[in-house]
Design a protein around this nucleic acid. Structure first.
Lengths: 183, 183
DNA sequence: GCGTGTATAGTCCACAGTGGAATGTCAAGG
DNA sequence: CCTTGACATTCCACTGTGGACTATACACGC
């Protein structure tokens, strides 16, 4: 009965006290959203399964259909086991690089538009990370609390650097490709 | 009829001439494998659908059950349309950061073991990227041909840097966590 | 010529992850 | 009292992942 990483992290969050699916989505977005994704659908799906397996139990039902869950002893055990497994490798999927890989089939102006807008996204993210860092430091956080944020900072800085060192002739008209029907 | 990125890139590869599913998996792994993933299952699944939609057609059938596909005019059109769409944002999922986010529940020695092995993976990748770069340059490639590789180089360098600036007290014993049953 | 291992080639399936539509409830303010 | 927006969950279709399974062709050693 191996847990997947999503279930593992949900169990991790429940260590801070009972939460509903809605709460967990919010928490996850804030705490691990920069390097892990999990969607509403998935959270509710997993919560149901987790309850069935006895990893969590209903803590309280509030207004609307709100159902908060609490860790069980079994859930706590399962979490520790999961956390002790060697974490898998990272996965990156970056559609912009796909576009770039096929850039010779693309209009130069469109390409430079795409690049500009993606660059802006990364610049914004870097800016927001810096603010988060400053705020955390002001609130008394130490380096240990900032490792994942630091990852984001370095990542975004590197990506921006990459944008700023792209060769010019990327967005310069290239003679139309032969577009051969065969090899 | 919007194509997904996987179909888009398959169409892209077929511009180089007819290929079978098997070939396409190999090509994709080599050309876009560092920032995009696609699995055998998916390739064959999509090829069937693409053929049904008239984006590709059977080019030849070889030994074993080999079936090579060729682009149709419609497929070429669909590819251009797909490529002209603004590419989506990148997705990153890094389980190690998840582990790190819950590090206070984890044994210091285990954590440092995980960190060491992940660091090694990134060091290897950086090394291999450098070799690829050198080989490409030696073969006469220009900057324009190396943009995606350059992304990988900068990414891996940044990640390694991050590893090398992790605070020491990450892997220093932390007083056992209270592990409260509730809030 | 004859096995036999390895690379090639494809199929199938269960599970995980994504994104949006649909549904409903409660709270606040005019 | 009515509308608007935040809260909360469910459901679905599609996409993506990874492994098990089958089978054929070919190179090689004998």
């Amino acid at each position: 009965m191996r847990l997947n990483a999503t279930v593992g992290s949900l169990l991790g969050f429940l260590h801070e006290g009972p939460q509903s699916g809605w709460d967990l989505v919010t928490t996850a977005q804030q705490v691990i959203g920069d390097f892990w994704s999990l969607t509403r659908s998935q959270v509710y799906r997993e919560l149901t399964a987790m309850a069935q397996q006895g990893l969590i139990e209903t803590a309280e039902t509030g207004p609307r259909d709100r159902t908060a869950y609490r860790l069980t002893a079994q859930g706590r055990r399962a979490f520790r086991e999961w956390l002790a497994q060697p974490p898998g490798e990272e996965q990156i999927r970056y559609p912009l690089l796909l576009t770039l890989a096929f850039a010779r089939h693309l209009d130069a102006e469109q390409l430079s538009g795409f690049l500009a807008s993606h660059r802006a996204v990364h610049a914004d993210r870097l800016h927001s990370y810096r603010q988060q860092q400053a705020a955390a430091l002001a609130a008394g956080a130490v380096a240990r609390d900032l490792v994942t944020l630091d990852f984001g900072l370095r990542y975004e800085a590197a990506v921006l650097d990459w944008f700023d060192h792209l060769p010019d002739d990327l967005t310069v008209p290239v003679p139309p490709v032969a577009d051969g029907t065969g090899a």
